[in-house]
Amino acid sequence: MEPLLQVNDLHVSFQTVGGEVKAVRGVTFHLNKGETLAIVGESGSGKSVTALSTVRLIPSPPGKIKKGEIVFQGKDLVKLTEREMFKVRGSEIGMIFQDPMTSLNPTMPVGKQIIEGIRWHQKIGVTEAKNKAIEMLKLVGIPNPEKRVSQYPYEFSGGMRQRVMIALALASNPKILIADEPTTALDVTIQAQIMSLMKDLQEKTETAIILITHDLGVVAETAERVAVMYGGVIVETGPVNEIFHHSRHPYTWGLLASMPRLDLPKAQQIEPIPGSPPDLFDPPAGCPFADRCPHAMNVCLEEMPPVTQVSSNHQVACWLEDPEAPSVERGKINQGTA
Rank of each mutant, 00 (worst) to 15 (best):
V24N: 14
L264M: 13
N334T: 00
V17C: 04
E82D: 09
D263F: 02
R163F: 02
T28V: 05
V49M: 07
T81P: 08
E128S: 14
R89G: 08
E203K: 15
A169C: 09
W319Q: 03
G158T: 05
A220F: 13
T184S: 14
G158F: 13
R163N: 02
E206K: 15
R330H: 03
A185E: 00
E2G: 03
A296K: 04
F289M: 04
E221I: 02
T50D: 10
Q122I: 01
S53P: 04
S258R: 05
I178T: 02
S43N: 10
I209M: 09
I210G: 13
M108H: 09
C300K: 08
L5R: 10
V126T: 11
N313H: 14
K332T: 08
V49S: 12
Y230V: 02
P326M: 00
A208C: 03
V126R: 15
H30S: 13
V7L: 09
L255D: 02
V49A: 12
C287K: 13
A38W: 13
L170C: 02
N32Q: 15
K132R: 13
T237E: 14
Q191H: 09
S91Y: 09
R163V: 01
A285C: 07
S258H: 08
H11K: 13
V235H: 12
L57W: 07
Q73H: 10
N144W: 01
T184L: 04
E203D: 12
H30I: 01
E271F: 13
G18V: 00
T81S: 15
A325V: 00
Q191K: 10
V328G: 03
H30Q: 14
S45C: 11
I234E: 00
Q15K: 15
P174G: 08
E321C: 11
D279N: 15
Q269I: 03
K204D: 13
R119I: 14
K87F: 05
S258I: 07
Q98M: 09
I190W: 07
M165T: 04
E84M: 04
K123G: 12
S91D: 10
F281R: 12
P272G: 06
